[in-house]
Design a protein around this nucleic acid. Structure first.
Length: 400
RNA sequence: GGGUAGGUGUCCGAGUGGUUAAAGGAGACGGACUGUAAAUCCGUUCGCAUAGCGUACGAUGGUUCGAAUCCAUCCCUGCCCA
């Protein structure tokens, strides 16, 4: 176990945590000196991890570094049923193969942050024990909780009072998740603050099964780059943990000022108030450098920053994505390609109409020149650089 | 089972037979300003090689010169009663 004193360990664990319940129970578990089992439940439907997930993964990593064991629970069973979990639309049910596939992908990405040492990381699928329960077991499990208790969950009570549908099986999810804690005898379970209720149900159910209840540690929900909504892939306000260094750098520079502190706290070891004292712009840079070097190594940071500065000055970066256009998709005529179609193929617009509008609004540049005519045709004898707005570049060249 | 209110574009939401591709807002995307920030301001907002055409108001069928709007059947959801 760790050489650090229990107090020092507590300090590390507490950084950025919203809530640790109960604190003294965690102290005691740490004092015992044994390797603790730290649980994290993972949603198997969204395998693209972003910084919102990274907050909790970083925290898991800290536990690992202190010698404890992390168990990732892939909710394949729950995923098969399709957890609506508060979203207005029920998620589609996934097949067992899909959830396994997603689980693998989750693990791959999670180990960017987590220590993959098998003595410190284990992965389990909850179908292992949930599938084995028969209807009687389920009813017994359900008997341990009341409807009134369930309705104390904010999400449920809100929906109930707003007359939004709540399917009966949704009430089972907290129980299923709690049962996971029973199955692996979790000492600590981590999750975002939106998981607080579920995590606490885990304590109650563990008690019912004669186990020592887990400590619940919650981390804040990360606000995305829009500065308003919580970070999520579907809102496209996210920074992916496997993004290349230059993208990660420029996205980190876009973190809005009020969220800067959050990013420094959770993703760096920098002193928060000292860093903020540098002023918003400089603090962004320091934060972005620290995080990019943490993910990609120190040598890529400089290149990422240079690229960022170059683009800020209106320059065109050396490195950018490239695609090769072949004739049929661009409707080549007389060796010429239509800009509108090229913009669509570049992914800058979803339809020709959208591309036309982009051009009309002077948002499309070809080799740094504003495209003003939506009938423009180009030959691709030489590769061209297409640019949408300030930061989207793509090099296009012609296929044979 | 009975009653009742609903289902409109990415979302919220107006619209109860005729310039309705559908008010308004949010979001998004461009532009200006800036710190490639925020706030603010301006433009855009279904598709199509676009002065035109095609689709679209839960689904299908019908009434009508004309339907998001009227009728029928079906699907889905809320609430109340049992």
């Amino acid at each position: 176990m760790s050489n650090l004193s229990v107090e020092q360990q507590m300090e590390i664990i507490s950084r950025g945590a919203v809530q640790i319940t109960p604190m003294d129970s965690l102290l005691e578990k740490l004092k015992s000196g044994r390797q603790l089992t730290i649980k994290l439940g993972c949603d198997p439907s969204r395998p693209d991890l972003h910084f919102g997930h990274a907050i909790v993964l970083k925290k898991m990593r800290q536990f690992q570094d202190l010698g404890h064991k992390v168990i990732l629970i892939i909710g394949d069973f729950t995923g098969m049923i399709g957890d609506p979990s508060g979203k207005s639309k029920t998620r589609p049910a996934l097949s067992l193969e899909q959830t396994r596939e997603n689980g693998k992908s989750y693990l791959e990405q999670a180990t960017i942050i987590l220590d993959a040492d098998p003595s410190k990381l284990e992965i389990r699928y909850n179908s292992e024990w949930l599938e084995a329960l028969n209807f009687e077991d389920v009813i017994r499990l359900a008997a341990k909780y009341t409807v009134a208790q369930m309705l104390t969950r904010e999400d449920f009570s809100n929906r109930y009072s707003n007359s939004t549908p709540i399917s009966l099986h949704e009430l089972m999810y907290p129980l299923a998740q709690a049962y996971d804690s029973v199955a692996i005898k979790a000492d600590v379970e981590l999750g975002g603050t939106d998981q607080t209720f579920n995590l606490l149900v885990g304590r109650d159910i563990q008690k019912e099964y004669g186990l020592e209840p887990q400590v619940v540690l919650t981390t804040p929900l990360l606000v995305g780059l829009d500065g308003v909504e919580k970070m999520s892939k579907s809102l496209d306000n996210y920074i992916g943990i496997s993004e290349p260094s230059d993208v990660m750098f420029s996205k980190l520079m876009k973190v809005q000022d009020p969220q800067l502190e959050q990013y420094i706290t959770h993703f760096t070891k920098l002193d928060v108030s000292e860093t903020l004292a540098l002023g918003a712009v400089q603090a962004h840079r320091v934060m972005a450098r620290a995080i990019v070097s943490d993910f990609h190594g120190t040598d890529t940071v400089q290149a990422a920053e240079e690229r960022y500065d170059n683009v800020a000055k209106g320059g065109v970066p050396d490195q950018m994505k490239e695609i090769i256009i072949s004739k049929p998709e661009a409707r080549e005529e007389d060796g010429l390609f239509w800009v509108v179609k090229l913009a669509v193929l570049a992914g800058f617009a979803a339809s020709n109409g959208e591309a036309r509008r982009l051009i009309q609004n002077r948002g499309l540049k070809l080799n740094s020149e504003v495209v003003s005519d939506d009938k423009l045709h180009v030959d691709l004898e030489e590769a061209i650089v297409l640019q949408k707005g300030k930061n989207d570049f793509l090099r296009l060249s012609r296929g044979s």
